[in-house]
C-alpha cells in the first residue's frame, strides 16, 4: 500500500481515538480537494519553500533536480521521485510523500495506540481512495482479527469486487457524497456521481454501516435541492447512521503549492457557521440524523 501519511490521535475520522492512514491515489479530482497530495497514485516530492534554509544538502540528487543559482529552484521534470533529497534535507523542506507498506507493517503501527482505542476508537483508512489498494481489505481483516474497530473513508468510486472485499471487515464506511447533482458532480470532481451512489446502495444492501460525509462548498452545493436529495438518499439506506457535513477549508492549499501546483484556495467557498447550521437544520427537518462536532 502506498501511504501518504499516518496520523495518530485523530478525532475527526470516525468515533473515539483513531489512527488514520491516508493512502495515495484517487479516481476523483475534486476542485476543492483537502488532501491534494493523495490524488496521485505515485510518490510525489513536496517542497515547503518556507522551511528551506538554502543549505544545499539536496545537491545529493543524482539527476540535478535542485538548482541554487537564484534561491532554491526545482526542475520537477527531471525528478524520478527517488526521495534521496528528502532524506538529506535537514529542515524537512523536501519530503517524499508516498511510502510503501505491507499490511502487516501497517498493522504494527496502528496497534501502538490500541490502549487508547477502547471499543469506539480504532483505525480509519482514508486517502485518496483507500479501497483501490488491493491490500486494503487484507489490512482491514488483520485489524479485525486484533479486535480493532475499522472505518473506511471512501469516495465510492471503486469496483464492485474491491467494495465487496472490504465490506466484511469494515465497521463503518465514511461515504463521501460530494454532490447529488450529476452535472455539478462531473464539473467539480471530474466523474459522474451515478456509480458512487449505486455502490452506496449496493453496500447498504449488503449490510454495510455507513455515515454520509458531505463536503459543504459555499455557492456550489449549499442549496436546498442538495439537502433534499441527501435526505432522500439517507432514507433509502437501511444502515446509514447519519449525515456529517465537512465544511470546505483552505488548509489543504499549502500542500498543493508544495506539490508545485498553483494555489487553488477559494476563501469564497468557505461556508459560514450559519450556513452550516442552516443545512443541518434542513436535514433534521427532513428526518435525517445529523452528526455534528459542534455543541
Amino acid at each position: 500500500m502506498l501511504i501518504a501519511s499516518i496520523q495518530r490521535f485523530c478525532m475527526h475520522d470516525g468515533d473515539g481515538v483513531r489512527t488514520t492512514v491516508f493512502l495515495k491515489g484517487c479516481p476523483l479530482s475534486c476542485a476543492w480537494c483537502h488532501n491534494p497530495e493523495t490524488q496521485s497514485f505515485q510518490p510525489e516530492l513536496l517542497f515547503h519553500a518556507a522551511k528551506c534554509i538554502g543549505c544545499g544538502a539536496c545537491g545529493v540528487c543524482p539527476r540535478g533536480v535542485h538548482g541554487f543559482a537564484a534561491g532554491h529552484t526545482l526542475d520537477r521534470g527531471l525528478c524520478t521521485r527517488c526521495g534521496v533529497c528528502g532524506e538529506a534535507c535537514p529542515t524537512e523542506a523536501l519530503e517524499l510523500c508516498g511510502k510503501e507498506y505491507t499490511a502487516e507493517a501497517l498493522l504494527d503501527i496502528v496497534l501502538r495506540d490500541k490502549d487508547f482505542y477502547g471499543t469506539a476508537g480504532g483505525v480509519t483508512l482514508s486517502g485518496g481512495e483507500p479501497l483501490l489498494s488491493e491490500e486494503a481489505s487484507l489490512f482491514l481483516k488483520l485489524c479485525r482479527e486484533r479486535g480493532l474497530n475499522t472505518a473506511v473513508e471512501t469516495c465510492g468510486m471503486v469496483s464492485e469486487r474491491l467494495l465487496r472485499g472490504a465490506i466484511p471487515y469494515t465497521d463503518l464506511f465514511l461515504w463521501d457524497v460530494k454532490d447529488t447533482d450529476e452535472l455539478r458532480h462531473q464539473a467539480y470532481t471530474g466523474v459522474s456521481c451515478k456509480p458512487i451512489l449505486e455502490n452506496l446502495l449496493l453496500a447498504d444492501s449488503l449490510g454495510a454501516k455507513t455515515r454520509l460525509r458531505c463536503i459543504l462548498v459555499k455557492g456550489v452545493n449549499t442549496n436546498e435541492g442538495h439537502y433534499k436529495a441527501l435526505a432522500e438518499l439517507f432514507h433509502r439506506l437501511q444502515h446509514c447512521e447519519g449525515v456529517e457535513f465537512l465544511p470546505y477549508h483552505t488548509y489543504g492549499d499549502s500542500k498543493a503549492v508544495a506539490l508545485g501546483q498553483k494555489s487553488k484556495a477559494r476563501t469564497d467557498w468557505i461556508p459560514s457557521e450559519d450556513e452550516i447550521s442552516y443545512g443541518e437544520a434542513l436535514l433534521r427537518q427532513g428526518g435525517v440524523t445529523v452528526i455534528s462536532r459542534r455543541g
Partner: peptide
C-alpha cells in the same frame, strides 16, 4: 477542538484509560 461533542468525552476517557493500562 479535540474535546468537542460526545466524541470529545470519548477521547478524554480513552486517554485516561490508556494512561492507566
Amino acid at each position: 477542538h479535540t474535546v468537542e461533542g460526545e466524541n470529545g468525552i470519548c477521547t478524554l476517557v480513552a486517554l485516561l484509560k490508556g494512561f492507566v493500562s
